[in-house]
């Protein structure tokens, strides 16, 4: 697994070097472009603040009510068969529907277990290698008025299952 930590260390510097070098070769005013993009990023982050407040509060309510612990206890048995920690199951299920709600649950795991714990690492990878299956499908198919989606769902779920298995294996 040496090459994986190698990637972790060198991928970002490499991308930064490549993009900056590429833009300089194209004779772009790089810093002006950068500021334009950074300004857009500020707006994006501020834009997601209401979503984040709403969802983190909802997860906070679930956590404090004791529901999340009860759910984890309930899922312990079936989840252990698949070698998935019980807290991860709600993240997986919610992930299929909403990315930001899954983030709310993920941050709860970060808070209780820490991001460097085995569970923390697992959900970090999991959320990075999966997409909101149902949301994406409904948006894309709605645009062309397609209702019979044939094997799209099965394929998307197969890919997601592959991602989940890899997350378990790699953490």
């Amino acid at each position: 697994m040496q090459w994986i930590s190698f990637l972790s260390e060198y991928l970002i510097p490499l991308v930064l070097f490549y993009i900056t070098g590429f833009a300089v070769l194209q004779k772009r005013p790089v810093f002006d472009d950068f500021m334009e993009g950074a300004r857009m990023g500020l707006r994006t982050v501020v834009g997601i603040l209401p979503t984040l407040i709403g969802l983190m509060t909802a997860v906070g309510v679930l956590r404090a009510s004791g529901f999340l612990d009860a759910l984890s206890a309930l899922l312990e048995g079936p989840a252990s068969v698949l070698r998935i920690p019980a807290q991860v199951v709600p993240v997986i299920l919610v992930r299929l529907v909403s990315s930001s709600a899954a983030t709310g649950l993920l941050l709860d795991i970060f808070r209780t277990e820490g991001p460097d714990s085995a569970v923390g690492m697992m959900v970090s990878i999991l959320e990075s290698c999966t997409e909101t299956v149902f949301y994406t499908m409904s948006v894309y198919f709605m645009a062309v008025k397609v209702t019979k989606t044939r094997w799209t769902l099965a394929g998307a779920l197969a890919a997601t299952a592959g991602g989940i298995a890899a997350s378990i294996f790699l953490s």
């Binding site: 994986i4 592959g162 991602g163």
Partner: peptide, 17 residues
């Protein structure tokens, strides 16, 4: 530390797809 494993897992899910 998530970068490498995430990329590997993304490659797996995409290949399965």
């Amino acid at each position: 530390a998530v970068v490498g494993p995430a990329l590997a897992a993304t490659a797996v899910s995409t290949l399965v797809g």
